[in-house]
Simulated assay, not measured.
Amino acid sequence: MSAICKPAPVSEAANPDQALFDAELTPHRSLSPRGFLILMTSVCAISFAGGLAFWLSGAWPVIGFLGADVLLIYLAFKINYRRGRLVERLHLTHDKLTVSRVWPGGRSASWEFQPTWLQVICDTPERNQGTVNAVADNPLILRSHGRNLAIGSFLTQQERSEVAAALRQALVRAQRPCRPA
C-alpha cells in the first residue's frame, strides 16, 4: 500500500504538540528495479531477434525503428520511476495539520490548517446496481477557510478513502480538549 498511516494514541495527559496523526503518502510502483532489468532485457532480446530477422531478409532500416522502440520504453519507465519519488506528509497535532509535499525534482511546499475548521472531503463513487458510475476517481480534499488542497492524487480510490477515514478519526481526537497532568 502506498499510504503509511500512523495514528498516535492519545493519553489522558496529552501534550498539545504530540502527533495525533502522521502519514507519509507515496505513489505505488509495482515493478521492482530487478523486475525492470528483467523486462528491459526481454524487450532488448525480442527487438534484437526481430531486427536480425529483418536485416537478414534485407529490410535493414527496420532495425532503427526497433531500437527507437526500446529507447522509448526505457524513457517511459524512467519518467514513471522519477514521478514515483513524490512524497506527501500529513502531520496532525492538537494545534494544526501540516501538509508537506516534496516533488521529485526536490522542490517542496507546505500548508497548515487549523484542525477545528478542517473538512476532509472524499466522496466515494456512487454505485449503480453493482457497477461504478462514470465518475470513478474522486479526489481527497482538505478544505478550511475557503482554501482547498487536493492530496493523494496518486492513490487508489480505496486508499484515499482509508486515509480520509483515519484523518477524520484523528481530527475528532484533536478537537478534544487537552487535559493537564
Rank of each mutant, 00 (worst) to 15 (best):
M1L: 07
S2M: 05
P9G: 08
P16H: 09
A23H: 12
L25I: 15
P27K: 01
H28Y: 13
R29W: 00
L31R: 00
L37R: 06
L39W: 11
M40V: 01
A53E: 06
W55D: 03
S57R: 05
P61N: 04
I63P: 01
F65D: 02
L66K: 02
L71Y: 11
L71I: 14
Y74M: 02
L75T: 08
A76W: 00
F77C: 01
K78I: 03
I79P: 00
Y81L: 01
R82M: 02
E88W: 04
E88S: 14
R89T: 14
T93F: 06
D95L: 14
T98N: 05
T98A: 09
P104A: 00
S108K: 12
S110A: 12
Q114M: 12
L118A: 06
T124R: 15
N128P: 04
Q129P: 04
G130M: 07
T131Q: 12
V132H: 10
A134D: 13
V135P: 03
L142P: 02
R143N: 09
R143F: 11
H145A: 11
G146R: 09
L149C: 13
Q157M: 11
V163N: 12
A165R: 12
A166W: 09
Q169W: 09
Q175R: 15
R176K: 14
R176Q: 15
P177K: 10
P180Q: 12
A181K: 10
